Simulated scan of single mutants.
Amino acid sequence: MADLELYELEGCPYCAKVIEKLDELDLNYESHMVPRSHDERTEVQEVSGQTGVPVLVDPENDVDGMPESDDIVEYLENTYA
């Protein structure tokens, strides 16, 4: 099964879109909740180079920090559907 990681923020509609796709595809993932303040999001910045969420990491397919919910959903569909 996939060894995915998702950097997300509670209440984020873009994150919810990605989580919905992960659930639809029955993919296991590790959730990393980020702080509300962009200034405190050092962990996600180290992974993706930016502070926005969601960010997906898929080490199995050399995805180190994919931002943008639409891109993530498309990637999940193309890779795991």
Rank of each mutant, 00 (worst) to 15 (best):
L4M: 02
E46G: 02
Q45Y: 05
Y29P: 06
H38L: 15
K17W: 07
I19C: 10
V44A: 03
Q50Y: 05
G52M: 08
D23F: 09
E10A: 14
D26L: 12
V47Q: 06
S31K: 14
L25A: 08
T42G: 08
Q45P: 03
E40K: 11
P13M: 08
R36Q: 12
L22D: 05
S31R: 15
D26S: 15
G49E: 04
Y14G: 10
V47P: 01
T51G: 00
E46M: 10
G49K: 04
Y29F: 09
E30R: 11
Y14S: 08
Y7T: 02
V34A: 03
Y29A: 01
S48F: 02
E8T: 13
Y29C: 00
E30W: 07
K17D: 12
C12Y: 00
D23S: 14
L25C: 00
E30H: 09
L25W: 00
Y14P: 03
Q45H: 09
D23Q: 15
R36N: 12
L25R: 02
I19N: 00
N28D: 10
L27W: 07
V34N: 08
C15F: 01
R36I: 13
E43S: 11
E43M: 04
I19K: 15
G52T: 14
L4K: 04
L27C: 09
A16L: 12
E20L: 12
L6F: 01
V47C: 07
D26R: 15
S31W: 02
D26N: 15
S31A: 12
T51F: 06
R41Q: 00
A16R: 09
C12E: 04
E43N: 09
L4D: 01
E10V: 13
E24M: 13
H32V: 11
T51Q: 06
E24G: 12
S37I: 04
P13A: 09
Q50M: 10
E10D: 11
V18R: 07
V47M: 08
L27D: 06
E20P: 08
V44W: 05
Q45F: 07
L9I: 07
G11I: 07
L9A: 09
R41H: 05
E20V: 14
E10T: 13
Y14R: 09
V44N: 02
S37M: 05
D26M: 13
K17S: 14
V34T: 14
P35H: 01
H32Y: 11
L25M: 01
P35F: 05
S48C: 07
D39T: 09
C15R: 07
E5W: 04
L22G: 03
G11H: 03
T51N: 05
L22Y: 03
D26W: 09
H32C: 09
N28Q: 11
Y7S: 02
D26C: 10
V18I: 07
C15Q: 02
D23R: 15
K21C: 04
V47R: 10
Y29I: 00
H32W: 06
V34L: 01
T42M: 03
E43W: 04
Y14I: 07
V18E: 06
D39H: 12
L6A: 05
E20S: 12
D39W: 05
V47F: 02
A16Q: 14
Q50D: 02
K21S: 11
Y14A: 10
H38T: 13
L22W: 00
S48A: 10
T42Y: 00
T51E: 01
S37E: 11
E40R: 06
G49C: 05
G49A: 03
E40C: 03
